[in-house]
């Protein structure tokens, strides 16, 4: 489910803005660190969980405005260089601000411990994360399918010139899309913190997986990225049971095959 969140966030960014956002993993980590600091400041897990992703969104707006906007016509190489540079800056910034030593965040008391599901014990917090992520994904889906903004965003992926001809400020659309993608990365990071703990490089693994999800879904296929995110998660845990060393290799293998055979993605129609 978290993969779906990361995937959909990156999918919006790659789809609407057509840039490879290498800073996505670092923003994920930033969401987790914001969560911990806000909990320390406010003493409230839920409020922190709400505010941390918004903080990441604000950073996202700054990045889009100051860095990415001049680059829409610059070619992927410079976009790559910029977003990679930003991810270095964010990661090193985390080290300077919070220290390189990993940190720990417990789930709120009512979500600690495991629940016996009959077949297996499962942690309460993970159940909560699944439910929350499912709700968010559903929310994102409704937003994209049923609202005017969602429609504009989808149209922006299909045909940017048409959208701007219709009198919609394309720059505002881009900023909004980038910020939304960042917020989703921030939520995923914040939700992950109690499961995996925090360290400045926590986003690196996630970045790779997010790209796999996007590739499987097809660039800019937002709904596909939800399904692909779930698929990757399930596939990875299944492979981990039988052949743990290969769990990462397998998903990249699948990504390669999909890119070769069905570049429009598993769920692409184009």
């Amino acid at each position: 489910m978290l993969y779906a969140l990361m995937g959909i966030g990156l999918s919006i960014i790659t789809g609407v803005l057509n840039i490879p956002n290498f800073a996505h993993g670092a923003l994920f980590a930033l969401g987790a660190y914001f969560l911990v600091t806000l909990i320390q400041l406010l003493g409230n897990f839920w409020l922190a969980l709400l505010l941390a992703p918004l903080g990441v969104g604000v950073i996202g707006i700054v990045i889009e405005y100051g860095g990415i906007r001049p680059l829409y016509r610059a070619g992927h190489d410079y976009q790559l260089l910029l977003t990679f540079g930003l991810s270095l800056i964010v990661t090193e910034g985390i080290i300077i601000v919070w220290s390189p030593v990993g940190m720990s965040q417990l789930p709120p008391p009512i979500l600690r411990g495991g629940v016996d599901l009959g077949i297996t014990i499962y942690p309460r917090y993970r159940l909560f994360v699944m439910a929350a992520a499912a709700l968010l994904v559903l929310g994102a889906w409704l937003f994209l399918e049923r609202t005017r903004y969602g429609a504009i965003m989808r149209a922006g992926i299909e045909d940017k010139e048409m959208v701007s001809l219709l009198g919609i400020d394309i720059h505002r659309l881009f900023t909004a899309a980038f910020a939304l993608g960042c917020v989703l990365a921030g939520i995923a990071g914040a939700l992950t913190a109690p499961i995996r703990g925090l360290n400045p490089w926590m986003g690196v693994d996630m970045l790779g997986i997010a790209f796999v999800v996007v590739a499987l879904a097809g660039l800019g296929n937002l709904l596909g990225s939800i399904v692909a995110g779930l698929l990757v998660g399930v596939a990875q845990s299944l492979v981990a049971l039988v052949w743990p060393e290969a769990s990462v290799a397998v998903i990249f293998g699948v990504m390669t095959v999909v890119l070769l055979v069905r570049p429009q993605g598993l769920f692409g129609i184009r």
Partner: peptide, 16 residues
């Protein structure tokens, strides 16, 4: 020790 930060800044400067 935090030299990657400078590298990141250099990247951004070059790009912008």
């Amino acid at each position: 020790a935090r030299w990657p930060l400078l590298l990141g800044v250099a990247f951004v400067v070059v790009v912008l």
